[in-house]
Design a protein around this nucleic acid. Structure first.
Lengths: 243, 243
DNA sequence: GGTTTTCAAATGTCAGACAAATGAAAAATG
DNA sequence: CATTTTTCATTTGTCTGACATTTGAAAACC
């Protein structure tokens, strides 16, 4: 683990990179304790605050965790799917909100990815996944539900669909795509009529999943994509007219 | 932007969260300059090193960038697809290497996601994407290519396929899935015969994309997935026997 | 033996200082 | 007047040294 004294990059960046490389390359293994801040400072010939800035950078990426006290220190963190989910969601959300990605583009990506899960989910979903989907569909039919709650239930429904595939890597990838869409979806007002249409499509998808028919589930998702797009366009058009 | 003095969480974490929330909620907009470190320290009633640790956390997530000098400071960063790609790749790579995800699981996720892109790519790919795919196929046929170079070319081929869909959100999502697999793929030794089979499948996929036949491209990817799995299993089996 | 106390080690935080970069204003120059 | 050079204030980057807080383990005690 070394740094280049001639580099123009900030020392804390160099140190963070050096430690990150060590972790990625397996020189530092999970749960291994890093040297103390003072020792690292001595090793890299920098001050403790500089080392600390480097460690904070790594902590922000969930690469290490720190513990105070006598036997404390910085430890290589096992990156959990949980941690990865939330990072993925934050990044995706910002990406969508900052880069003026059109609703169409985001929507297309989301449903394309979900269609990838559908056949696997139809094949492998447990009774539990199916029950969640049914429960969310029921909730979506309740009158008096706010638009936000409707959207949240929508996310839960799709999450169950994706998790049904039983592939944690897929679930992780999809978490970002589905959840990041929520702020965009929240901009849509759902009328009673449009909710009815969506609930019907959700039911069709759940039926297909229950029957183990992946193709039908994919088709249902395509229909849902078209319905969502239609809905979004009309909402945006109405909003433009009012301006 | 406030912090809770009663919270037990580290101050630098609280401050980072407060600023992150301000960015996500749009209270701080892209390219806006944050107050100087001294001003932030005064605002939050903490010392400058503590503020700096918070800023480094945000910088690690590409949420801000800093500039030295008279008109310098910390600025809200527009999260580029580029930045998001590399974060996504780092996270995915670590996730796969640290959580003992089976080759099968990772492979399944990757090809499922790619199949989601295939129909779009068949419809929209430019001549440029197609040319890249053909060029990589040619390279893969060259004798004397190292296994690493073969894998790198493989990644480039699939990247072009995905980019052909013309959806940056999809490309971003797939970047992680495809590139994170590379270390796993590098563990495989490609014999002349297996390379030949892969090149043939790549050619079939490129032909399908050129013909605008999304279904054929999907089928080609499925065939490639099976071939990859078969190859991996035989390599792993041979390795086990030798132990 | 079990309980309490003490203690050392580590991270978290603070204060103040200097170095280095950098853009803008001021001064010098043609 | 236009242009170049110099100065300078501002801001981040880094260092030093200190104290606070947490925490597990060893030592002392009953």
């Amino acid at each position: 683990m070394k740094i280049d004294p001639n580099s123009s990059a900030d020392l804390s960046v160099q140190i963070a990179d050096a430690i990150r490389d060590a972790i990625v390359n397996g020189d530092l293994i999970v749960d291994e304790r890093l040297p103390s801040e003072s020792e690292l400072a001595e090793h890299f010939r920098v001050s403790r605050p500089t080392v600390r800035e480097a460690l904070k950078r790594l902590a922000a990426q969930s690469l290490i965790r720190t513990q105070r006290g006598a036997t404390g220190g910085a430890f290589v963190n096992r990156l959990s799917f949980e941690d990865a989910y939330s990072q993925q969601i934050t990044t995706s959300t910002l990406l969508l909100s900052m880069n003026a990605v059109s609703f169409e583009t985001a929507c297309e990506a989301r449903y394309a990815l979900e269609r990838a899960c559908a056949p696997l989910s139809a094949q492998r979903r447990t009774a539990d996944h199916l029950a969640t989907m049914r429960a969310e569909i029921f909730r979506q039919g309740q009158p008096g539900l706010t638009d936000e709650a409707f959207c949240a239930s929508d996310v839960a429904f799709h999450r169950a669909l994706v998790d049904g595939a039983g592939n944690p890597v897929l679930s992780y990838q999809l978490a970002g795509a589905v959840e990041a869409m929520q702020p965009l979806m929240n901009m849509i007002t759902f009328t009673a009529r449009s909710r009815e249409a969506i609930v019907a499509l959700h039911t069709a998808i759940a039926d297909a999943i229950e029957a183990g028919d992946g193709q039908a589930a994919s088709d249902g998702l395509t229909a849902l994509e078209n319905e969502t797009l239609k809905l979004a366009r009309s909402v945006f058009a109405r909003r433009r007219r009012r301006k």
